[in-house]
Amino acid sequence: MKLARLLGITMLLLGRRRVGAQELAERFEVSVRTIYRDLEALYAAGVPVVSYPGLDGGYEILHTFRIDRQYLSMEELRSMLIALKGVQAAWSEQQLGRLLDKVGALLSRTEGGAEREKDAGQVVLDLNPWRGGKREKRMLEELGQALEQCRAIHMAYMNWEGKESEREIEPIGLVLRDMVWYLYGFCRLRQDYRTFRLNRIQRLEPLEERFERHAMTIEELDRRWESDGEQQLELRLLFHPSVRTRVRDEYPPQAIRQREDGWLEVACTRHKGYWLYSRLLSYGPRVKILDPPEVAQEMRRMAQDMVELYEDRS
């Protein structure tokens, strides 16, 4: 723990001109006296820590001091800094802030690194959802603690049909996919592994009860669900030229073939369920399902239901 703190103090001082002992103590959650001992240890180890008295006083490292970057190039450090800033925007964990300080310090103290650090601000990786950002941050922090401590959670969850249920979950992991956070866990109600969208969790309560960590991983669950043929559909879709920009946004280039008449034919695999049909219906008359026939039939039925909804019954 002390070694990690010494490294953290060194990186923080490398990245900033001057820091007071009180600020260091608060940041690393130790006493000021411990910080004094740490600074003395750094100086004894050859790190040129200089103290300055007065109101603007504090500690800093001589500007000429460098730390060997070893295996990381400046471009790698810059990419890491961009990614960490994006993660911190969505997940406000204190350790991420410390890690950002360390990476930023390494980058700024390399030759030409200060300019590269400024460049990192020109590329923004924003992982915040469009809505409910603060609420999801709080949930991410609570779920992160539950994962770390192997604590079960109780939650009220609303499914896509609007039906709410009370669940007890043993969390396995958190996944950000398509700008949506998902909780992977073992559902005691269903006695099976499930995924839950964080924005559908109506109420969340961490429990004191601990559980034995599951051997199942997120990667294994993804492979299991992807290999479940009953939940997968091989689709052939035909899109009108007027929606080609959206089609290219939503489907990979290798899945798209443009026909001579300008229409776009797309071959893809999708999960069964409401979201498949809601996505296809959002294209209106600008998409036609070529295969499989049962999807085309279900789309026809849903379209007829919509027509009946707007019929004049007077």
Rank of each mutant, 00 (worst) to 15 (best):
G15L: 02
R16Y: 08
R18Y: 06
V19D: 05
A21F: 06
E23D: 15
R27S: 12
Y36W: 08
R37D: 10
R37H: 04
Y43F: 06
G46Q: 09
S51L: 11
L55N: 15
G57I: 12
I61E: 03
R66L: 07
R66T: 02
Q70T: 08
S73Y: 09
I82N: 01
V87C: 11
S92Y: 02
L100Y: 02
K102S: 15
G104W: 00
S108M: 13
A120Y: 01
A120M: 10
Q122A: 11
L125Q: 08
D126Y: 03
P129C: 04
R131V: 08
G133L: 07
G133A: 12
L140Q: 05
L140G: 01
A146D: 00
R151K: 10
M158D: 09
M158E: 14
M158H: 06
S165T: 13
E166M: 12
I172S: 02
L183W: 02
N199Q: 14
I201C: 08
E208R: 05
E212P: 02
E212M: 08
M216N: 03
E226F: 01
G229K: 03
Q232A: 08
S242Y: 03
V247L: 03
E250L: 03
P252A: 06
P253K: 04
I256Q: 02
I256T: 04
Q258D: 14
E260W: 12
G262W: 11
W263L: 10
E265W: 11
C268I: 08
T269K: 05
T269Y: 09
W275K: 12
Y277V: 07
S282G: 05
P285Y: 09
V287S: 00
K288L: 08
V295R: 01
E298L: 11
E298R: 06
M306F: 14
E308Q: 15
D312E: 15
